[in-house]
Design a protein around this nucleic acid. Structure first.
Lengths: 234, 234
DNA sequence: GACTCGCCGAATGTATACAACGTGTGCACA
DNA sequence: TGTGCACACGTTGTATACATTCGGCGAGTC
């Protein structure tokens, strides 16, 4: 890759982490990354520092950088925290949004609609991320945005499989998510804070059900596997 | 200042910002800071990046770093957000605290009690900061901690005058704050989440009243100044 | 055969020299 | 006298060479 700006490098690494192309826990080598982006190590290290500040990676002295991991404890915390932050952000967004921000939000939703229809899973997940990050900007609350941005990192990584629907029932869920986005845009545009909260929590419920099923998939049929295994169980 | 570790430099700059020795909006010069701490510019820049990630400073390309400002909009947001985050953190802390963390919290409270009694204002503000940051650690929730840490930066900076009491009435308020800390420790130790929330909100009310008086000081006597000014008002 | 000590290689951490950018000042011209 | 441009200085951004640390591998010993 030829010489590139530092911001572009930051954005690209964010994308690669959000799509789990760089998997949670993956080690990041400074020299190879610097070579990839056509930067020298000094500016690349600054990019890594910024990624660490945003919660994308963790750094250990003399031991390099790793993509932020997603252990079971983190995920428990995620499910515990997300609805509260999302709801508060939505309310503030409805209160404080500007028309310029609203236009950007609508553009993100157009991309999202398109990409879910095309089955472009990675792109859809990123558009969804952008959609919710923009609502965060609207809230104009740097304290909560810090929390939201970290939640969205894990949310997007968890939802990588969401937009790659296996069944027609799952396709309906995606369409429902798209519709919910539209409703959220309307509520924010109309500055209806209570409605924005309500729609956001509905959206969260849909997302949570889907994510939990991914985390804890449907068990295998009992009669085929489980009974056999039980005979060997201690 | 002789050669010093990078972490010590980070901690010292945090202290200087929290005590407003480095005032909000103050420009930070890389070469002079590097000289002060006996580091070269490269590691000092990394310290600045980390401070930026934590919300202590802001950086603009080619224009250097500034201590995070505290404009009127930010403060409005601060008062809006703090109670919700503080309460949730307190609840989680009561749920998840370890005894080792509890010991550290008690130590911080000992320092705080001592320093308020001695009238050591800057030290008391920092102990108070440490006290609340430790409760944040107990919560074991990195999403909310990101938000809390940013709130505490501004809270500590705003409260710089708090521990320098002018009247005996204000001394009573400080004693009340110390007592509230003790009660919070007990609630967290007993894992009583509801009580921890309640005490935290009471603590916040006390703090808010005092801070708001600082932000919006008692108006000057009406008959002396205001009436005169009004005659010149358009 | 297993454990420990010490060396070696590969990574990160630091210093410094050089490049690029922004800002302020001073001069010229209207 | 005021405005605008250009140059120079100071500060930040980048590259690279050097220092330091970690971790693995092998030899030696118990």
């Amino acid at each position: 890759m030829p010489t590139i700006t530092k911001d572009a490098c930051l954005a690209d690494l964010q994308l690669r982490i959000l799509t789990t192309e760089l998997a949670p826990g993956a080690a990041l080598d400074e020299v190879s990354l610097a070579a990839q982006y056509g930067l020298s190590r000094t500016p690349l290290r600054e990019v890594l520092q910024r990624l660490a500040g945003l919660g994308y990676i963790t750094q250990a002295e003399h031991r390099g950088a790793k993509v932020a991991s997603m252990d079971i404890g983190t995920m428990r915390t995620f499910f515990q925290t997300a609805p509260m932050i999302y709801a508060n952000i939505a309310s503030l967004a409805a209160e404080n949004r500007t028309t310029a921000q609203l236009d950007k939000l609508k553009a993100a939703q157009r991309d999202f609609t398109q990409e879910t229809a095309n089955g472009d899973a990675a792109a859809a997940a990123l558009s969804n991320h952008r959609f919710h990050a923009l609502i965060g900007e609207m809230a104009q609350n740097p304290y909560l945005t810090a929390s939201l941005d970290r939640l969205l990192i894990d949310h997007t990584r968890l939802s990588q499989t969401f937009y790659r629907p296996a069944s027609t029932a799952e396709k309906d869920l995606i369409r429902k998510a798209v519709d919910q986005h539209d409703a959220m845009i309307s509520a924010i545009e109309a500055r209806e804070t209570a409605l924005a909260i309500d729609l956001t929590l509905q959206h969260w419920d849909l997302s949570r059900d889907r994510l939990e099923r991914f985390v804890r998939p449907d068990p295998l049929p009992v009669d085929v596997v489980s009974l056999k295994d039980r005979r060997h169980a201690i």
